[in-house]
Every structure is written in structure tokens, then in C-alpha cells.
Design a protein around this nucleic acid. Structure first.
Lengths: 199, 199
DNA sequence: CGTTTTCCGTACAGATGTGTACGCTCTGCG
DNA sequence: CGCAGAGCGTACACATCTGTACGGAAAACG
């Protein structure tokens, strides 16, 4: 089978899995249902992904990779660290609170083995935090920022930006934020961050 | 049946449910298993709690109520707002990151209806935030703190204190924090908070 | 002491999930 | 052209969960 077709098919299957995940949850999404939704056979699903966890692990990994890549792109082009953070903040927030990321976090919460959660952490926070950290380190070196360490400041940044929005979204205590609110929240977080890290 | 015995039995059943929830997750915990673990009959469970969600909703509500009560007690006795926050911070952190609260949040993440999440939010954050807010308002009035509003400062407090620890615990990307680390984290958060809200 | 209520243990029907097996079709390739 | 391989659709065995039902024991209560 041609490689392109196969990867296209995989994407279709994963799209179908996202749709079901988003309105039935992890427990309520069966492999059979995914197969039907994607008009594929469950045998194919099992052959390609091993089992249910394998399917969602793949989705988690590729989603996290996409997030990291988008962030890297945004960071790479900027020059001034603080201006870059201003730009990165709303982007990061919208990705962390987007329907897909939240659904995958719910799935990880429902997975007793912890593999999904480990994958999210490894490809998500553990990849993103160093990027922010490096950015902040630049700010520390040029003196526009002041903090005990780049690491601590990076954690402040993320805490002020995200707060408990993520967990609240995950437990369905909060609806998705419209674009305008995302920007407003990011701006507020940056104001607080600047104050906290003022020289 | 004597009232005390009945409520004692209920507690036993809920303890059993916690045990199973903690090592099998929400989806993996069946009513039958809870009944067996508690040496009760599933018919009793259904009569008392209605259904699975009812059982866990009860647990969520009583756990959140206990948290709020403990917090109220800690807040009530203090006089100086900042000193009270110092005292409240580690307490709140240990409750929010404790095994029970985390397991219940996982359950809420697994519950497609959103009822568990709504209950957590209502009895949890929505009750706790005003307490912190009131405390901070005192600080604003006496001038030891400065912030755009008590509400905003209360959210800063929670964000700096908890950060993403809760979601990371929920997806099993992080183990429980030992007591010493809780205190250290609370102290660090308070330092940052003081700086952020310095007049 | 007898009646009534409650609970335990077990069983049951109905539904659904997982992971595998089996024909059938279609496509790529020699 | 003919064959091999892959995927689709369906079916299957097996297990499990939910919510209800029934008989018996034990305790409360008049």
C-alpha cells in the first residue's frame, strides 16, 4: 500500500477517534465505534495500534508534537524575549485549553496505567518548559527580567498564564474560552509576570 | 435502623469506594466491586445512592465540604491576613493534591455528564476562592497588599500556589508530594505572592 | 412474641466492550 | 494475467457492567 495513503488513512482514523472522544469520553469510546466512525475495520485498528491505549497514545504524542512545533516556530522568529513571550502566551493558552488537548488530558485521567499521562507530560510540559526557560534566560542575561532562576520564572509564567483553567476544563467545570478571552487572559498574565519579574 | 449505624455503614461503603477508585480508576470501579469490598449488597448501594454517579457525587460533595470546613477553621482563628495565608497555603495545597481529591478529580474527568465536575467546582473552588478573597481584601484595606482587585489577587495566590500540580497529578504524570515539599512549595508561592502584591 | 423492615447474598436479563477469526473484495506487482 | 497481501465487514467467544429481583436472616418495634 502506498505510504501516503496509509498515513492519510491513519489521520482519518485519528480524526474519528477525536470526534468520539470529545463527546463520549475515553471510557465511552470503543474501538469498534472508532472503526465504524472511520469506516474502517476493527481488525485494522488492532493491527495498526495494538490496542485502545496504543491508539490514544499515538494521538497524544502527535498532538503534543504539533504543539511543541508550533511553539518552537513562534519562539524561533522573535528577537526580544518579552515581546516573544507576549506573542507566545495566547498561542500556548489556546493550545493547552483547546478541545483536543483537553480531551486527551481527560483520557489520560481515565487511564489507570498512567501511560497516556506520561506521554502527555514527556511530549508536552517537559518539552515546552525548556523552551520558555531558554527565552527567559535571555531576558535574565540582558537584564530586562529578574528572578531567582530561569526555571522558577518559567514556572511562574505558566502558572500565571494557565492557572487552574486546565483542570477546570478537564472536569467540565468550565466551557472553552473564546478567542478574545484567551487574548485577554494572556495579556493579564503577562502584566502580572512583568511585575513579578521586574528588576 | 439506628441512624448512627446507618451513617457509619455509609462511611464504610464510601471508604471502600475510595480504595477501589484509587487503584482502579473511575471506569474500572464497578458498583458490584464496591459492594463486595464493603461487604454490602449491590441492592443496598443502588437503594442508597441511586446509581454509580450518585455514589461518587456524594463522595465528592462530602470531601469538598470537609476541605472547605478545614479551611474556614484555619482562616477563622487567624488575625493578620498575610500570616493567615502563610498558614493556609500548605494546608490548602495538601488537600488539593491529596490522594482523595485527586482521585475524585479523575473521576470527574471520566464522567461524561459533567455532574461530578460541577459538584467539585461548586463545593470546591467556588467556596474556597471567596474565603481567600475575603482574606486578601483585608490585606488590601489595611494596605499590606496591593492588587487590581481582591479577586484577581486571590487567583494569583491560587495559581502561584498550585500551578499545574493538580492536572499533573490527575493524569498521573507526578507522584504525591511529601509533606516537606508541600511546605517548601507553599513557602515559595507565598514569597512570589508577596512580591507580586507588594505595595 | 410476632410482625415488619432492612440488609445480605446470589442470581438474572440485557447490553456492551475487547480482541480474534473468517470470508470477500480490491489493489499492487511480477 | 494471476497471485499475494491488505483492508473491509461481520461474526464470534468471552468477560464485564448495570440495574433489578428474590429468598433468607437478622434486627427493630409494638
Amino acid at each position: 500500500m502506498r505510504e501516503e495513503m496509509r498515513s492519510g488513512r491513519r489521520r482519518q482514523i485519528e480524526e474519528a477517534a477525536y470526534r468520539l472522544l470529545e463527546d463520549r469520553g475515553y471510557g465511552g469510546t470503543s474501538m469498534l465505534a472508532v472503526a465504524k466512525e472511520a469506516r474502517a475495520s476493527n481488525e485494522t485498528l488492532y493491527r495498526w495500534y495494538g490496542d485502545k491505549r496504543g491508539l490514544f497514545k499515538t494521538m497524544v504524542a502527535s498532538n503534543a508534537a504539533a504543539t511543541t512545533a508550533a511553539l518552537k516556530a513562534a519562539i524561533g522568529c522573535g528577537a526580544d524575549p518579552l515581546a516573544t513571550l507576549d506573542e507566545v502566551a495566547p498561542l500556548l493558552l489556546s493550545m493547552l485549553l483547546g478541545e483536543r488537548a483537553i480531551s486527551l488530558n481527560r483520557a489520560a485521567a481515565s487511564d489507570p496505567s498512567g501511560e497516556l499521562g506520561a506521554t502527555i507530560a514527556a511530549a508536552g510540559r517537559d518539552s515546552v518548559l525548556p523552551l520558555v526557560e531558554a527565552l527567559i534566560r535571555q531576558g535574565l542575561e540582558t537584564g530586562v527580567l529578574a528572578a531567582p532562576s530561569a526555571r522558577v520564572a518559567a514556572e511562574w509564567f505558566l502558572s500565571l498564564l494557565v492557572g487552574d483553567q486546565q483542570i477546570r476544563r478537564v472536569i467540565r467545570a468550565m466551557a472553552a474560552l473564546p478567542e478574545a478571552e484567551i487574548r485577554a487572559r494572556a495579556a493579564a498574565a503577562m502584566t502580572a509576570f512583568r511585575k513579578l519579574c521586574a528588576g
